[in-house]
Write a protein that binds this DNA or RNA. Structure first.
Lengths: 143, 143
DNA sequence: AGGATCACTTGCAGATCACAAGTAAAATTT
DNA sequence: AAATTTTACTTGTGATCTGCAAGTGATCCT
C-alpha cells in the first residue's frame, strides 16, 4: 500500500489518470487546460513519474510529430476500481451536488463499469465515459 | 474526486487511515512508531486535517487522561473499499512479495471484507484485521 | 520564411516537509 | 510531595517541493 502511495500519493497523479481513463484525454495540452489548473512543470514531472512507474506510456502521433499521446498501460487500467471507489466516496461524502441515482447505479454495477473501461482501453476508444454511466448494455433506458 | 484528493491526496493520510482501519491503531504514539516513520509535526497536522474533514474523531481515554483515542467516523469507514482496492493494486503491481492466493481471495470477497471492517468498527473491535483475511465466517479452514 | 502550436524547461518566491529539540499536562515512581 | 516518565503535541531550522511566469526548441501551417 505504501508502494502505491509513493507513486500516486499526491494531488495530481490520480487526476491525470482519471482524465486519461474516463475523459479520454491524451495530450499535455488537454491535461493542462482541463484539470483544476496544474502547473506545467508539475504536470511534466508527474507524467514522467507515471511513465517511469509503468502506469502510462507516451508515443508520438503519426499525423503530428509535435504531439505526444499518453496512454494508460495495463497496469494503469487496473487502477479503474480504485478510481471508481474514489469517485463514489467523493460523491457520497463530499458536499458536491452529485446525482444520487447515478452514484447508486455505479455502486451496483462496479464490475460492469470495470469491464467497460477495459473494453474502451483495448479498443482505443477515446470517447469520454462520463455522460452515459450505468446503462451500458443492460437496459437501454431513455437518457 | 478532486474533493477526495484534497483531503487525503498525500503520502500519509491514507496510511493513517489504514492503520486505524486494519491494524487497530488508536494513539499518536502508535502511528508515529509504526508507519514508515512519519514526522511528529506532520502527523499532528494530518490528524487535525482528517478530524476537520470529519473522517476521524478523537476522544480522551477514561483510564488515562493523557491519551487521545482516535477513531474512524462513518465517513472514514466508508473508505474501506478504496483502501482495499489500493491494497489489491499495490500487491498485484508493486514488486512486493505478497501472497498471491491471499490477494485473489480478497478480490473475490470484496463485499465480505467491507462488512467485516464495518462490523469491527461498530463493535469497537480493535483486533488487527491482517492475519486472518478471507476466512472470516464462511469456511473455517485450518490457518 | 514567418508565425503559431506543442511539450516541455528554467528561475524564483513562497509553501511544505523532515529532523531535532522543547513544552505542557497527566501519570507513575520514589 | 517531589522527581521522573509518558503522551501528545509545538517550535525552530534547513532542505525540498510547489506554483507561477517566462522562456526554449522542435514541429506544423501558410
Amino acid at each position: 500500500m505504501s508502494i502505491s502511495l509513493e507513486i500516486f500519493g499526491d494531488r495530481w497523479s490520480l487526476l491525470i489518470i482519471r482524465d486519461l481513463m474516463v475523459r479520454g484525454y491524451r495530450t499535455f495540452k488537454e491535461f493542462q487546460g482541463a484539470g483544476e489548473g496544474i502547473a506545467t512543470n508539475i504536470l511534466a514531472d508527474r507524467l514522467r513519474k507515471l511513465a517511469a512507474a509503468g502506469i502510462i506510456a507516451a508515443e508520438v502521433e503519426e499525423s503530428d510529430g509535435r504531439k505526444l499521446n499518453y496512454r494508460l498501460t495495463k497496469k494503469g487500467i487496473d487502477l479503474a476500481p480504485l478510481l471508481l471507489e474514489l469517485l463514489i466516496w467523493g460523491s457520497r461524502h463530499g458536499d458536491t451536488e452529485a446525482p444520487c441515482a447515478l452514484i447508486e447505479q455505479m455502486e451496483k454495477n462496479r464490475a460492469q463499469l470495470h469491464s467497460e473501461v477495459r473494453r474502451r482501453w483495448e479498443q482505443r476508444d477515446p470517447t469520454p465515459l462520463i455522460p452515459r454511466f450505468g446503462n451500458g448494455n443492460k437496459s437501454p433506458r431513455s437518457e
